[in-house]
Write a protein that binds this DNA or RNA. Structure first.
Lengths: 195, 195, 195, 195
DNA sequence: AATGAATGAGCCTTCATTCAT
DNA sequence: TATGAATGAAGGCTCATTCAT
């Protein structure tokens, strides 16, 4: 699940259009790296320094902080969203697809430290990100969940929104606490959800 | 699980001793309220304002921020810790005891919004609180967990520490999101843990 | 040169009059000790704590900070002032008397760390102290200086005021710098003054 | 001994480079003025106000307070250090060179009031400055002192470090006290040192 | 008279954001 | 378009000083 190169891959002409794009991409890469290291609340200066640009350049490309945060993770969210249907096709069983997808999601959240935090959606910054995550991933999760529960009569104990947020929450702080097994807890939660 | 009245209950004479105690309590109440509203990282000034005192008063009573944070939640943590053994005695089954205890814990965390956040323990401030929570509650949780799993041959999938932190994480943000069912998710997680 | 007991020695009746005096004395002792340790700018709280009284008590006895500072050192200044004429009588030569007196003064300043600083007289606090020092000691110094220079025709290169302040300045920081030889420098200055 | 123009003299083009330099210099000038007025411990805000800039600007240029303090006096210290060898060449006698150098040093300290204070080196801030002064000027003073004492058999009564600090101390407060003759006292001290 | 809790001004420092170049 | 200097609002913490008890 590569985060940042899909745009540049599509940029065939390296001229006037290419350069802005590329520098925007450099910003996103830098921001991703800094977010991973220092959390989503990292000083703008730190991001600018990492990207080798002035702070003004950040503000030129992303008028507000949330815009930047969303932009940073858009690629990953897209990749995750697109993986859902594919896994449903490729996997042996729907449950396996769901579990694979969740595993992918968890890895994504845990790897990009601070992302799970951002997902929470209480900080002013993260609301936009939260909305984006939910809007894009809940339907995917829902589809996988429904497939995994096909043939079950009982009402599902929670909806996809709750599963997604629960999984997200379980990933908080995982990168900083070696004793904490986010992945195991998440799979146990899924087991609970599927009965 | 009331947080703040045990002290005042003991203050029969309102004289020299009464006033300091009462104001310390007022500080804790104010801090709890502010923590619930603005998170554990709320400005000291905001707490002081809420309590109607100067910032100096806060620092007089709680030399460091972590001290204040721990003090705010000490009553609740104690109540929770003490409830564990009692529930084991009173409940029909050990699993019921565990589930009741967890329910109590969740209610505690969700009600005092911001507490679950504090529990995360990544901010420098909350480390002390985190340590206190873990030190006090993990043993209790462990006992309940062991009782609930008595007779099971298989290895437990996760230890009490992970259960506690997982539950804590699942409670994050619950108070602010009506769609989010922390309690349900927690019970599903427990189901997963107990198989 | 004991600093603080001359008052109490004169207090024959330990009754209503004695107790206030004694507690005032305890304050002075505590302040002297704290000034010596932490400088004349030491927090009032520290002094109160050392004296085992509340801060209010300090303010009751010494309405302003300078008052306290002056009071603390009054005994020593008096002792020093009174030693001048005596040394002139006891010493073999007037120069010996001057050098002995200066030595005593230096020891006094260096021992009571922060005193030399206070003597400088630029801080708002120390102005009163400065005035007191100068008013009380310059005449004494002048007498010793004149005696030491008796028989010399030339004009004195500096007056007693300058000698006193110069000596005071040379003592600044002496207690904190083992490499710094205030006493030696002072004697060299005196040599220069006497030719 | 001008303190601040050597840099600007090199700035021929007033463009991109000019502005930053000029404002850094403005900061140093403002700081020097404030240090002279209110001592080296003056609030950063006061310096910022004097310079007509925000506090952030100060911190941008000088990450720590000691850095600022050292920067303020660096030019002067350098000028003084470089004058030593030159005076030794130009002066009629080594003693004259020493006395000229000391005079220059005194003038420097007295003019920039607050500098002698800073030299004391007890405040955490001024330690860096103290170290810088001592490291840069003691060797120079030592050379002049040795030259002035060439041919003398006796041990020197004090080393260059003590001479420098003694002279520095004698300059404390000089600018504020018209009666106080720092220069005279200093020359008398030198006389004492040279016998 | 003594106490010490409370106050709040004031300091340092950090950082998001603006804007002249 | 890019830059990064400058800004100034916060926030944490420390004390001198007041005042109710």
């Amino acid at each position: 699940m590569d985060d940042t190169d899909s745009d540049t891959a599509q940029t065939s002409r390296p001229s006037q259009v290419g350069r802005p794009r590329r520098s925007q991409q450099a910003l996103l890469d830098a921001a991703a790296a800094v977010f991973a290291t220092s959390g989503v609340d990292a000083p703008v200066r730190e991001i600018a320094a990492k990207a080798g640009v002035g702070v003004g350049t950040i503000y030129r490309h992303f008028a507000t902080r949330p815009e930047l945060v969303v932009a940073v993770y858009r690629h990953q969210v897209e990749a995750c969203a697109e993986a859902g249907p594919r896994l449903l096709t490729e996997s042996a069983t729907p449950e396996a697809a769901l579990r694979s997808w969740i595993t992918m999601f968890v890895e994504f959240l845990v790897t990009k430290h601070g992302l799970a935090d951002a997902l929470r959606g209480d900080g002013a910054d993260s609301d936009a990100l939260h909305a984006y995550f939910v809007g894009r991933l809940v339907p995917v999760c829902d589809e996988l969940l429904a497939a995994a529960r096909a043939g079950t009569d009982a009402q599902p104990p929670v909806d996809a929104y709750n599963v997604l947020k629960g999984v997200g929450n379980l990933c908080i702080g995982a990168a900083h606490d070696p004793r904490y097994r986010a992945d195991t807890l998440v799979q146990l939660l899924i087991s609970g959800v599927l009965n």
